Amino acid sequence: MLDTQKLVTFATVVRTGSFAAAARELGYTQPGVSQQMKALERDLRATLFSRAGRGLKLSEEGEALAGRVGGLIADLRAAEERVAAVSRLKQGRVRVCAFPSANATLVPAAMSRLRSRHVNIEIELFEAEPPESLEGLERGDYDVVVAFRYDDQPPAPEVGELVTIPLLDEPMVLMMSDEHPLARRKQVELAELDTARWIAGCVRCRQEFVNACADAGFAPRIDITTDDNLAVQSYVVAGLGLAVMPRMTQSFVKHPKLRAKPLLPERRRHVTATILRSQPKTGAVERVIESLLHAARELNSAYI
């Protein structure tokens, strides 16, 4: 059985070119690195290094391992994470990762309901945007991921490891100051705003906005970009531009002088919960999904 730490040490020796350099980087002693490499050679029943003057040279076996060691380390760590996840879930501990606006609205409501009904379930909360959050799910970092996609992004096919549960479809809204000339309008056509200045949000929201403008026949003039939803609203209220944001962002923080208008043609963000197909079917995960679905229904009702 290959040991992950020995493989990490081997990869560091290969990259740095010597036992001494690897020891300095890893915080080991040089004899400690040498002992690990001898142990790895015993495990593999192969000689991995030969001396080349004062340096090291990889043997043919060492070259073969060096070409695969990165993938081996990743696979072993993923396996370790998956095993740890199974153990964690059996104990009623669930790791939930969500994007920022969901962590400010949907997830707190779901977790409050979960705690009031299932006191033996412990939740660890994390924050990340897709696709990073979904990559973490596949690595075993998380057990449930709350993610999203936009209209122009096709749903993930129900194949492979990821299983997606729809939670909420929310429209994109146009945000403006209450002093803006269009503030009294009930709804606004995006094509009318081809000369406007814009405030743009997170990377994926910004790309969705640019795509929407392209469909409307213009390229937007984006003056300010920020991942901070409160900052977006503050810039808009200050009269520095308009913004197109998912409706969820105004439900957890809304500036008193902000106006949000339906945008035509309508575009939507689709919020989902994702789990792994191979994940153990534990009651804890099922209860988390149930609570997220309930919170999504409640949030959707509040919009109507």
Rank of each mutant, 00 (worst) to 15 (best):
L240N: 11
A191R: 13
A183Q: 06
L182T: 11
M176P: 09
L190W: 03
L240G: 06
R197I: 05
L182K: 11
A238G: 12
V236Q: 05
M172L: 09
T195Y: 03
A216S: 08
T225C: 03
I199R: 00
V232A: 02
V210E: 10
D178L: 10
V210L: 08
G217T: 10
V236E: 05
V203N: 01
M175G: 09
M176G: 08
A238C: 07
R204T: 10
M176D: 07
P181K: 06
C213S: 07
R184D: 11
K186H: 14
Q207K: 08
D194A: 12
I199L: 00
L182D: 12
F209M: 12
A196P: 05
D228P: 04
I199E: 01
A200R: 00
A183I: 10
Q233N: 10
A212W: 04
I224N: 01
D227V: 15
A216F: 03
V188I: 13
A219R: 14
R184F: 11
M176F: 08
R206V: 07
V236A: 05
S234E: 14
Q187N: 07
G201N: 03
T226E: 04
H180M: 03
T195R: 09
D227R: 15
C205I: 13
D223S: 05
V188C: 04
L182S: 11
W198T: 00
R204G: 02
D228N: 12
C202P: 15
P171N: 02
T195G: 03
T226W: 07
K186G: 15
K186E: 15
V203L: 04
R184M: 11
R197Y: 06
M176E: 07
L240T: 10
A219I: 15
E192L: 13
Q187W: 09
S234N: 13
Y235H: 12
L230H: 15
L230K: 15
A231H: 14
Q233D: 10
M176K: 06
L182V: 12
D215P: 00
I224W: 03
I199H: 01
E208V: 06
N229Q: 14
C205L: 12
D227M: 15
L182M: 13
M172G: 02
D215A: 12
R197G: 06
R184L: 12
A216P: 03
V173Q: 01
A183G: 06
V236T: 10
E192Q: 14
L174T: 05
A196N: 05
V210D: 04
D215T: 09
I199M: 00
D215S: 08
T226F: 04
L240S: 10
C205N: 13
R197K: 10
T226G: 04
I224E: 03
A200G: 00
V210A: 08
P181W: 09
I224S: 01
K186M: 14
A231Q: 14
C213P: 04
D178K: 11
V210T: 11
V173H: 00
L230N: 15
C213Y: 03
P181T: 10
M176I: 10
A238S: 13
A200T: 00
T226M: 05
N229L: 13
V173Y: 00
R221E: 11
R185L: 13
D194S: 13
C205D: 15
C213W: 04
R204F: 02
